[in-house]
């Protein structure tokens, strides 16, 4: 039974890793096509993508959109969770439902809706429009994570702080935020990941300044190239490094 289990484990891990291995391996290809036989290793495609101004511009745009939209989503989500967790408001179930709703709607539909609205208002596609869309998809996520993390002991600690003379702002800064630090960080980094990786909203709502996934998409249309492997591998590497740093710092601490 156990041996059979391990065979299955190896087989399915092979399936899961296959595309990643092929992606990274052929980023070191020397020739012009990322298909066997492997004729590397060569770093020339890395040199090419790092010197590609369009790609680097897109990378900066992606980072900008991800940071700005995640910060806004986190702030709005935090305030909403704080408000709804604290007192029973009339209609709080409806409000919760409305805040969560965008999570169950395809990004394509959110993008199309915003496009309809912006067209109607004469608002041109831009990075800002994309950022607005990314807040829409990340706000439910931030709200849900933070709302779930706010328990009774949280409420009691806040009451105690108010009782001891803290102002509303001091309560949030000195009690609520530190107590919720792991949830806040998790929500923020998840939002960054989602925004960073999002394609369809960015594709429909940008025109000249594009984000990285859109730029990669346009690279694809000119056919297979080890350059795409190289940029894909770089993004993967950066994500993994961030993940390991998070795992070793934030989440290790929050576990103990």
């Amino acid at each position: 039974m156990r041996a059979l289990g391990y065979i299955y484990l190896v087989a399915i891990f092979a399936f899961i890793f296959l595309p990643v291995i092929v992606l990274v391996l052929f980023s070191f290809q020397a020739g012009r096509l990322p298909v066997p036989p492997f004729d590397g290793p060569s770093l020339k495609w890395y040199a090419e993508v790092l010197n590609d101004r369009g790609l680097m511009e897109a990378l900066r745009n992606s980072l900008f959109v991800a940071l700005v939209s995640s910060s806004i989503a986190l702030m709005l989500g935090f305030l909403a969770a704080q408000g709804l967790a604290r007192v029973r408001l009339p209609g709080s179930v409806v409000m919760r439902g409305l805040l969560i709703a965008p999570m169950t709607v395809s990004y394509l539909i959110i993008a199309l809706g915003l496009l309809s609205l912006f067209n109607g208002l004469g608002f041109r596609p831009s990075l800002w429009a994309t950022g607005i869309g990314h807040v829409v998809i990340n706000l439910p996520l931030c709200f849900a994570i933070l709302f779930a993390a706010m328990g009774d002991h949280q409420k009691n600690a806040e009451r105690a702080a108010r009782d001891l003379g803290a102002s509303e702002l001091q309560v949030v800064a000195l009690v609520t935020a530190p107590m919720l630090k792991p949830a806040l960080l998790a929500a923020f980094f998840l939002s960054i990941t989602f925004s960073w990786d999002e394609f369809i909203i960015a594709f429909l709502l940008t025109r000249f300044d594009v984000t990285l996934p859109v730029e990669i998409w346009s690279m694809l249309r000119s056919g297979l190239s080890p350059a795409t492997n190289a940029i894909g591998s770089l993004v993967f590497l950066v994500s993994i490094v961030i993940l390991i740093i998070l795992e070793l710092t934030v989440f290790r601490k929050s576990k103990s």
Partner: peptide, 8 residues
């Protein structure tokens, strides 16, 4: 592989 870009 979640951490590779979705298009990639």
């Amino acid at each position: 592989p979640f951490w590779t870009s979705y298009v990639v």
